[in-house]
């Protein structure tokens, strides 16, 4: 129900449905790890909840992000968390937004966006979700991703003078 609605709403962001599936999505199947994984293309994928724990997985480009989050906001989702993943082999950083609903009509939506590792800039969603503030600050200090338009982008958990980003894969303590 709500999943379907959200899927349709999010689908509008991607004018042409992407036919191909990136290898990373094929969980459960045994894959040869030697094969270099291609970065996944933008698009919307429905996931198996029993395996992955969420329903919709939308990868958008950074400039589509606000649009996608607005759709989620209008469908009355709450923000669960924001985090990053460092895909060092692809030279990319991924920002993952988790959304869920205060409802028995279960639907978990994951919105993700990928940015260049050397120039990680993502628009902030604090204007839509005030609670994204801390999550974005945390992602900023752990990954060095800049959230443009963030009201108070200073270190939250790390010391004030920390100039490193510990969750980057090339960080060695």
């Amino acid at each position: 129900m709500i999943c379907e609605k959200t899927r349709l709403a999010l689908q509008k962001l991607f004018p042409t449905p992407e036919p191909q599936e990136a290898p990373i999505e094929d969980a459960g199947e045994e894959k040869d790890k030697k094969v270099p994984q291609e970065p996944r293309n933008n698009g919307l994928v429905e996931r198996d909840y029993a395996v992955h724990g969420y329903h919709l997985d939308a990868q958008v480009s950074p400039d589509q992000l606000l649009e996608a989050v607005t759709i989620v906001d209008e469908a009355e989702f709450f923000i669960e968390s924001i985090t990053g993943v460092d895909w060092i082999k692809d030279g990319q950083l991924e920002v993952i937004y988790d959304f869920s609903r205060y409802d028995f009509d279960l639907c978990r939506v994951v919105i993700r966006t990928r940015v260049d590792r050397n120039h990680p800039v993502v628009p902030t969603i604090t204007g839509i979700y005030a609670g994204a503030n801390w999550h974005e600050r945390e992602t900023h200090e752990f990954f060095g991703i800049k959230f443009t338009g963030h009201p108070h982008l200073v270190p939250l958990l790390l010391p004030e003078d920390a100039d490193f980003h510990p969750l980057l894969k090339d960080f060695k303590a």
Binding site: I24, G53, D57, D98, S100, R108
Partner: peptide, 19 residues
């Protein structure tokens, strides 16, 4: 196997999610 997994549980303090 490679992939992205999420699990939420209700702990004493609320909805704990682990990805």
């Amino acid at each position: 196997p490679p992939g992205d997994y999420y699990q939420a549980v209700e702990t004493a303090r609320g909805s704990f999610g682990i990805r």
